[in-house]
Amino acid sequence: MQIFVKGLTGKTTTLEVEPSDTIENVKAKIQDKTGLPPDQQRLIFAGKQLEDGRTLSDYNIQKESTLHIVWR
């Protein structure tokens, strides 16, 4: 499925993911596209910070959802 990651600059990155992907895995995909290391990424969805060990489905993140990224 496709999801979007929007940064503070307003730039949006598209990712191809599975609902079973962990947040850690998603951060690795973001690094592949942007070069930003996972330890500098904070992902937010529906006002919650996403924890590395959880999956996208744990947070009810579905296709075409938009996550927000904040740099540490």
Rank of each mutant, 00 (worst) to 15 (best):
A28Q: 14
T13E: 12
K63Q: 12
I3W: 01
I30F: 07
G47S: 05
R42P: 02
T12I: 15
S65M: 11
T12F: 11
S65N: 10
V17W: 02
L50K: 00
L36F: 10
G53T: 09
T12V: 14
D32A: 14
K63S: 15
R42C: 12
H68N: 09
Y59K: 00
I3A: 01
T66V: 13
W71G: 12
I3C: 02
P37T: 08
L43Y: 02
S65Y: 07
K27C: 02
T14I: 14
P38K: 15
L50E: 00
T55R: 10
L15R: 00
G10L: 09
K33D: 05
I3Q: 01
K29W: 04
E18A: 12
Q41R: 03
F4G: 03
K33V: 11
S20Y: 10
G7C: 11
E24C: 06
R54C: 08
P19I: 08
E51R: 07
Q49R: 09
L8K: 09
A28H: 12
T14M: 12
G53V: 06
D21E: 09
R42T: 14
S65W: 03
N25T: 15
K27M: 05
Y59L: 04
T34M: 13
K33W: 10
P38D: 04
L67M: 04
D32H: 14
L36M: 12
P38N: 07
S57H: 08
G53A: 10
S57Y: 08
G53N: 11
P19T: 06
I3R: 01
V5W: 02
F4T: 06
E16K: 08
D21K: 01
P38L: 11
T12A: 08
E51V: 09
Q41A: 09
V70M: 10
A28I: 13
V26N: 00
M1R: 02
T14D: 04
V17D: 00
P37R: 12
E24R: 14
D39N: 12
S57D: 08
L8I: 12
L67R: 00
K11Q: 12
V26S: 00
V70N: 08
L43G: 00
Q31I: 03
I23P: 02
A28Y: 12
E24L: 14
I23F: 02
T12E: 07
T34E: 05
P19N: 05
L56T: 02
P37G: 05
V17T: 03
K6G: 04
A46C: 07
G35Q: 05
P38I: 14
R42Y: 13
I23M: 03
D21V: 04
G7R: 06
Q62H: 11
G10N: 08
P19Y: 07
I44H: 09
I30W: 05
K33Y: 08
E18P: 03
Q31F: 15
T9W: 15
